[in-house]
Nucleic acid binder design. Sequence first.
DNA 1: CGATAATTTGAATTAACTCAACTGTTGTGG
DNA 2: CCACAACAGTTGAGTTAATTCAAATTATCG
Lengths: 254, 254
Amino acid sequence: MGTHSKVVSIDGIKVACSNCSLASLCLPFGLESEDVDRLERIVKRNRPVQRGQILFSPGDHFRSLYVIKTGAVKTFTQTPSGDEHVVGFHLPGEMLGLDAIQDDRHGCFAKALETTAICEVPFDNLEQLSASIPSLQHQLLRLMSKEVSAEANMISLLNNSTAEERLASFLISLSERFRRRGFSATDFFLAMSRQDIGSYLGLALETVSRLFTRFQDQGILQVERKHVRILDMDRLRGLLRHQTPCHTQADKRS
Amino acid sequence: MGTHSKVVSIDGIKVACSNCSLASLCLPFGLESEDVDRLERIVKRNRPVQRGQILFSPGDHFRSLYVIKTGAVKTFTQTPSGDEHVVGFHLPGEMLGLDAIQDDRHGCFAKALETTAICEVPFDNLEQLSASIPSLQHQLLRLMSKEVSAEANMISLLNNSTAEERLASFLISLSERFRRRGFSATDFFLAMSRQDIGSYLGLALETVSRLFTRFQDQGILQVERKHVRILDMDRLRGLLRHQTPCHTQADKRS
DNA sequence: CGATAATTTGAATTAACTCAACTGTTGTGG
DNA sequence: CCACAACAGTTGAGTTAATTCAAATTATCG
């Protein structure tokens, strides 16, 4: 038993909010360390979910917010005819389920794109704790506000951009998000398919494929299936110079 | 002085949250009446803004959330070249500025489409009050979550719909929103121009105009400039039957 | 190793756009 | 109060970016 509790404790230390490299993107940001400990106590850490596994489905009762620790998740809806519409891709430090607070039901599917570790934050507990920790309440509101901003940027992108600008914007967003998480900003693997990217950007998968080829021919990227290397970031950024100045931030989330 | 304070007091009664017909869509929803009074005390009610007046601009310091009492507002961004991209239209009971909590700056313009009365809710005060009134905190989170959901629906609409479906969806959304506010769901005036509608829906203004004409020719609508009458709601709804089932709610806000 | 799925590439089609002309409306100053 | 300018909306014709359909190629997985 001593051994068992020791193991749990080691596990606990390894994934504790107080040691988490993603803390600055997540709920603990701006909290005193004693308050981080209080937050810590309500967070559940289940076993990692495998590629293809569903985290939640539309209509599921909303109990918890989820934060990606490692891996990647896509959220999507489904038409009666069965085809998917990708709503978003979620990387480490990003939160899932904010749209479900509204009516206590999830509104989309969440599916792991690869093996993914997730922190589960029971929402009732989070609300109670937020009321007694002002900086936690503030950070929760900030994260929701970021989501609103990110989606507004997405709407703007879909409204006013060509296929080329959309893919460029998507790649720059990914690049920035990887950079902030300590990964390479110029050399990374796409967890999602061309189909998924197309669905997310409102493009046919063939269009996405053609654009990857074009960017490669122009020397902007080197693409080999899921592996993307950005060779000329300036030129990539140049492709979307005609965007609105107000939401210029390429990084759409935290 | 007695007279002066009396006038203010009458004014105050007339627009009080506790008497407001929009309370069920707004922050007071779910609050005990004594808590509504506490909320009431932090809300500022400035003189109405006139058509064309700007409420806030990108980069403005964020101090308050705004709720429309009467009238209508559009939010939009501007490209360096000066053309507008409409982000949203806001009717009575709808909240402005949620995207600004994130970084303490507004990210878009807000402009009155007609004479508009507005409640200003200083955000610092609202946060403090939320911490001591659990149901207020919950309602604020719910309103933000609604915004996230509404924007997700908009993204889905822009990603997967034809021009016809977009305009149908827009009209149904407006209709629902008017209905909940006690106005006619089938007979209303558009506060915004064809240009604005086009910008919001990612369509050319000519396309919007042509669609209004087509809907009229088909007997679905009767359109006369800003005046819209929905003659066949079933057929209008039928135009977007191929949407995703999860976010089926036509009404995008509250 | 074979089968299924993902990706690439080509060719034809189309929905929506741009450009352009015209009409109707609104508001302003002489 | 009217005339005229500026703006908002409609309609038409040609163009185009991205789609759909189709086929070939390349991974991935049991």
